[in-house]
Amino acid sequence: MSMNKLIDEILFELKELKKNKKNNARTTVSGEMDQYFELMLLLNLVEEESNEGNK
């Protein structure tokens, strides 16, 4: 799987997470944010490695 495809997959999951947040008000805020931050951390780590590879 290419790095770009991996980034797209993470972005898609982030989008879904945001969508679910709107639909499911009962989700605990901290748990939801942790999930979001973990995905953002993963996204940034992958992007950093991708940028490093493109140098």
């Binding site: 495809k5 993470i10 999951e13 973990e38 995905l39 993963l42 780590l45 992958v46 490695e49």
Partner: peptide
């Protein structure tokens, strides 16, 4: 050790698990 993990796999689920375990 994300670089090595990314070299080993590009499966999102596995990388997600690595980040989660790291935290």
């Amino acid at each position: 050790d994300f670089k090595n993990n990314l070299n080993r796999t590009s499966e999102k689920a596995l990388l997600k698990q690595y980040v989660s375990d790291f935290i």
